[in-house]
């Protein structure tokens, strides 16, 4: 479907504070594939990580143990087909492409924790939520899946939600970042 552009729910460039201590970017177009199956299935054995943890596969795919018996595979845009095919499908295993169904954003930087602490009740301390942690929770009253996916030693979180909430979620998180120097882009508002 290369001739037809993927359109995500958020129409905003990446935002960042002048001091670089926080950046916020929409990554809704990333490939997202959901795998369901018992841990003892071939898919479960292949994917390996348990609920709450993630690992990056050699092909760059981030495998997240998103729930007991459920994995979310994240990759760069346009890889749904090859990611899905990489999963052994023997036994009772379901593979669902949720690329279109989930909005996703990435928030990074020193102040990311401070901004998230305004909208999310999960304890983001290093021991409670270390790099690679996968968890779910309410972000500005929307149920989200979160992955701590640090980049170059700097805090970074991927946050995804049901696509239809995407615009609202991005606005709400951007709003939480205003205190740390981010300008709210015109057209976005939580009100």
């Amino acid at each position: 479907m290369s001739e037809i552009d993927f359109r995500g729910p958020v129409d905003s460039v990446a935002l960042s504070a002048p001091d670089g201590a926080i950046t916020l970017a929409d990554e809704s177009s990333c490939t997202k594939v959901l795998v369901r199956g018992a841990r003892k299935t071939a898919a479960g054995i292949h994917l390996k990580v348990t609920y709450g943890r993630s690992r990056r596969r050699k092909d760059g795919v981030l495998v997240c143990g998103s729930r007991p018996g459920e994995w979310t595979l994240l990759a760069e845009p346009g890889r749904s087909g090859d990611v899905a095919e990489s999963i052994p499908s023997e036994g009772f295993v379901s593979i669902v492409d949720i690329t279109h169904g989930r909005a996703m954003l990435r928030i990074s930087g020193r102040d990311a924790v401070g901004a998230l602490a305004k909208v999310c009740n999960v304890d983001l301390a290093d021991d409670m939520t270390p790099d690679g942690a996968v968890f779910s929770g309410s972000v500005a009253k929307v149920t989200c899946d979160l992955v701590r996916d640090d980049r170059d030693g700097e805090r970074s979180y991927l946050i995804s939600c049901e696509r239809s909430f995407g615009r609202y979620l991005f606005s709400a998180v951007a709003d939480a970042c205003v205190e740390f120097g981010v300008d709210m882009p015109p057209g976005l508002s939580i009100h």
């Binding site: 729930r67 007991p68 968890f135 779910s136 929770g137 309410s138 149920t143």
Partner: peptide, 13 residues
């Protein structure tokens, strides 16, 4: 009392 909870925003158990 023994009661049931559903982990709605979490693991959905």
């Amino acid at each position: 009392v023994t009661e049931t909870w559903y982990c709605r925003s979490g693991c959905r158990t």
